Computed example of a mutant assay.
Amino acid sequence: MEFIFYLVLILFFTKVAGDISVRLGQPSVLGKLIIGIILGPAVLGWLNNNEFIHYFSEIGVLLLMFIAGLETDLEQLKKNWKSAFAVAVLGILLPFLGGLGVGELFGLSMEYSIFIGVLLSATSVSITVQVLKDMNKLNSREGSTILGAAVVDDVLVVIILAVMLSFLGTGEEISLSLLIGKKLIFFLVAILVGWLVVPRILSSLSKLKVTEPIMSIALVICFGYVYFADLLGMVGIIGAFAAGIAISLTPHKHVIESKIEPIAYAIFVPVFFVSIGLNVSFSGVGNQVGFIIILSLVAILTKLIGGALGAKLTGFSGNSSLMIGSGMVSRGEVALIIAATGLQEALLLPKYFTSIVIVIIVTTLVAPPLLKYFIQLESKSPSKNI
């Protein structure tokens, strides 16, 4: 029954830490991330990553992105696709060059340096989504641009990583055309199913004489999208986000939204927030403090500047651009997956793995207060870009 004890600790301490964070003027998610570090191996050692944590956190991040999809204004998303693309491209280019430069600075070989550049190019907006929701900015023009850029970023980084693995990795050669074809198939099928199938399934099966048929079918659609995304080489959170958008176009949107949030935020999402902190360990990094500090600064600044520059070039005001750039800073679980892949394919030296994980955690911890600061700055701006 150890997992019950874990659940008790996580649910209690995330709520207390979140409350303290808000009282100190920070987003609640920051406190939840920090409590994961405190409860985990890095400090108290009360919690460790295990199968329970893994599966519950996986469900948590999927539900978080599913809710983001449900709350997304599709018209706003379509209007800002050019900005989203520019933010994603520049938000990949600058971190890639920055990571490459840091690798060269510390005497790493070209292939190791390139991999660090690819790693820093990744973005995870699961934490950003929570801050945007808390501050009622998820449906803003800036929020829609961040979400759209995250989708583009994921596709481009996966393709870049696949190209790198095919040339430098130890695995089998990867067909680039097949990889891109799979991405196109995913989006095509996701759109068609969302347009033609999802509304009919919800309408017909909502009449089943069982408890909560609408919610059950919504979760089937969500996890079905996730599984399909995974089969075609997409990150699962993109599938969950696409499922949320598909359901948001149906009359059942508000019912599902009101019922999915208590399920997600009561159990699964807190486990996800804590699980990020559990990856932190300070053992064996004493000689790499300089590497960690420099790479963390490069990771934060290049993503912030790259995203902001992409937004500014497509018509956003200065404050709005910085808000968008800060929303792209967190690397989260996407970068952790890439780091694990690099270690497996001998593209990341084992002695640097823990340091890389710490850098990823740093970007994830910095993102919420940074985003909140720029949201407040944008809100006070006398001339908002509408």
Rank of each mutant, 00 (worst) to 15 (best):
L309E: 04
G307Q: 00
A335H: 07
V334D: 09
K312H: 11
L313V: 13
S326E: 08
E333K: 07
S326H: 10
R331Y: 02
G315A: 09
A335W: 06
S330N: 10
R331Q: 15
G310W: 02
F316Y: 15
G325F: 13
N319L: 02
E333P: 05
A335P: 08
L313S: 09
A308C: 08
L336N: 05
A308E: 01
G306S: 05
I324N: 11
G310K: 04
A308V: 05
L322V: 03
A311P: 12
V334F: 12
A335L: 11
V329M: 07
L309A: 11
G315K: 08
G332D: 14
R331G: 01
G332P: 10
L313K: 08
G327Y: 09
G307V: 06
S326F: 10
A308K: 07
S320R: 14
S317H: 06
G306Y: 08
A311E: 01
S320A: 14
G310N: 00
G310T: 00
F316N: 14
V334H: 03
K312D: 01
G325V: 13
S317D: 13
S321H: 10
K312A: 10
A311V: 02
G307W: 04
I324H: 14
G325Q: 07
S330F: 11
T314I: 08
V334C: 07
S330R: 12
A335D: 12
G310M: 01
A311K: 10
A308I: 04
I324E: 11
G307P: 03
S330K: 08
A308F: 07
A308D: 10
G325D: 07
S317I: 02
G325P: 10
S321C: 04
T314E: 13
S317R: 14
G306A: 11
G327I: 06
M328P: 03
G325K: 11
S330M: 13
S320W: 06
L313A: 06
G332F: 03
L313C: 01
G307M: 04
G307C: 03
M328D: 06
